[in-house]
């Protein structure tokens, strides 16, 4: 479905990613793990079209995404929940969600999708008229997820969805993500929570300093001595 082939991304002189490849197929939930600064966010921002790629190619259902701007990539159904949630703080919860259905392909179904999101996340339904900036971290993450669902993603990319959340809220978010995948959503999950992430995904990629260090099924990654020492502290 999505295939990233040997992409390189530079920030000025610095190479943030060096010839990284990755595959996500329909219905799969793939993990992308690595330490802070290893290039995980850069990779999904490159897929979203937020950062230009200096080499390599990203293809989506056989077609290149080269030259497409973020709004065009969003229209293809590749939807990112950015790190730190990046809600619109001075807009209400409902307005944030409605903005998720901004692109014309899904705008007509916005009201329908809104009801669906509210039934998935009853807690934010109660807060629909509040400013998004006034919610707790867990609730904000639900709004961020809800906003992404409003866009009817065909590939959902989540960047550190549990960052800054209490362990309880984080567990809740991971449950929701697993549920979405069970219903058939294709997901690329970026996280530093290696244990929790590998527990719910099937295949994983490990980035180190902008280079792909490992890729394997999650069961085997959990057994890998390098993953154990570097990421699980075992």
């Amino acid at each position: 479905m999505l295939s990233v082939e040997n992409i390189t991304v530079c920030y000025g002189q610095m190479k943030a990613l060096r010839e990284v490849s990755l595959e996500v197929s329909t219905g799969q939930m793939v993990a992308l793990i690595g330490a802070n600064g290893s290039g995980k966010s850069t990779l999904i921002n490159a897929i979203s079209g937020l950062v230009p790629i200096a080499g390599g190619e990203i293809t989506w259902e056989g077609q290149t995404l080269k030259g497409l701007t973020p709004d065009n990539i969003c229209r293809e159904g590749i939807i990112q929940v950015p790190e730190g949630r990046k809600l619109f703080p001075a807009m209400t919860v409902e307005e944030n969600l409605i903005m998720g259905a901004y692109h014309p392909n899904v705008r007509k179904q916005a009201q329908e999708s809104l009801q669906k999101v509210f039934s998935t996340f009853p807690r934010i339904a109660d807060r629909r008229r509040q400013f998004a900036g006034s919610l707790s971290g867990g609730e904000q993450q639900m709004v961020a997820l809800g906003r992404a669902l409003m866009a009817k993603p065909r590939l959902l990319m989540l960047d550190e969805p549990s960052l800054g959340l209490s362990p309880k809220a984080a567990a809740e978010i991971f449950d929701i993500i697993r549920g979405l995948n069970k219903e058939g959503m294709t997901i690329l999950l970026v996280s530093q929570e290696v244990m929790q992430t590998l527990a719910i995904t099937t295949y994983g990629y490990v980035l180190e300093n902008g280079v792909l260090a490992l890729k394997d099924s999650c069961d085997r990654l959990l057994e890998d001595p390098k993953v154990k020492t570097s990421y699980l502290g075992l």
Partner: peptide, 14 residues
């Protein structure tokens, strides 16, 4: 309003 408050997220949503 979205572009003013959070331009990057606005771009990500089209």
């Amino acid at each position: 309003r979205a572009a003013w408050q959070q331009p990057e997220a606005a771009r990500l949503y089209g």
